[in-house]
C-alpha cells in the first residue's frame, strides 16, 4: 500500500454511548488491510483508551488518523481541563475520573500506562485549562517474526 489513508473523527465529551466508535472504525480498517491481529489489537486498545479519556475528561475533541504503507499515526486533540502534571498522570493508579466515569468501568488510573504499553511511540502534551494533545505512532508490519 503506497498511498496515505486519512480519517477524521469528532468526539463529544460525556457521550459514553458513542465512546469507542472511532476506535472501532480504525480497527475495522486495519483488519481490512490484513494487518496482524496482535498489531491491530495494540492500536485499538491504545486508541480506545485515548478516545475514552476525551469522553471522560474533555468537552470535545478530534482524532486524526494517517495510515501509510508501514505505520499508523494518530493524533487526538481535545478542548478540556488539560493535565497539570503528565508524569503524575502516567503513574499507575492515579486518576481524576468522576464517579460516572468509574460507573462505566474506567477511571482506575490505568489508561495512560496502558496506552504507553500498547504504543510504539506515545507523546502527550497539555495546556492546563485549554486541552490535551496525544500522538500515537505504531508500526503496522513487524519484521521480527523471522
Amino acid at each position: 500500500m503506497d498511498q496515505v489513508m486519512h480519517f477524521e473523527y469528532a468526539v463529544e465529551g460525556g457521550d459514553f454511548f458513542n465512546a469507542g466508535a472511532a476506535s472501532s472504525n480504525v480497527k475495522k480498517i486495519l483488519k481490512k488491510l490484513n494487518v496482524d491481529s496482535h498489531v491491530v489489537k495494540r492500536v485499538a486498545v491504545a486508541l480506545y483508551e485515548a478516545e475514552v479519556n476525551i469522553v471522560a475528561h474533555a468537552y470535545r475533541g478530534k482524532i486524526w488518523v494517517d495510515i501509510d504503507g508501514r505505520r499508523i499515526k494518530i493524533i487526538l486533540s481535545d478542548e478540556g481541563p488539560g493535565i497539570p502534571d503528565i508524569d503524575l498522570a502516567m503513574k499507575a493508579g492515579y486518576s481524576t475520573a468522576s464517579p460516572r466515569v468509574r460507573e462505566m468501568g474506567f477511571g482506575a488510573g490505568m489508561g495512560l500506562p496502558n496506552m504507553k504499553k500498547n504504543s510504539d511511540h506515545l507523546h502527550i502534551t497539555s495546556a492546563p485549562g485549554k486541552g490535551t494533545q496525544v500522538e500515537i505512532i505504531n508500526e503496522l508490519y513487524e519484521s521480527h517474526a523471522f
Binding site: 465512546a19 480506545y48 496502558n114
Partner: peptide, 27 residues
C-alpha cells in the same frame, strides 16, 4: 473494571462481568 480487561493480552477468551453497558461491549 474495563480498565483491567484492556490490559489482558489473551484473545478469544470469555469475559465474566457484572458491568452491563455499551462500553463493556466496546472493551
Amino acid at each position: 473494571l474495563m480498565s483491567d480487561v484492556l490490559t489482558v493480552e489473551t484473545e478469544k477468551m470469555l469475559l465474566i462481568t457484572g458491568l452491563a453497558n455499551t462500553q463493556t461491549i466496546r472493551t
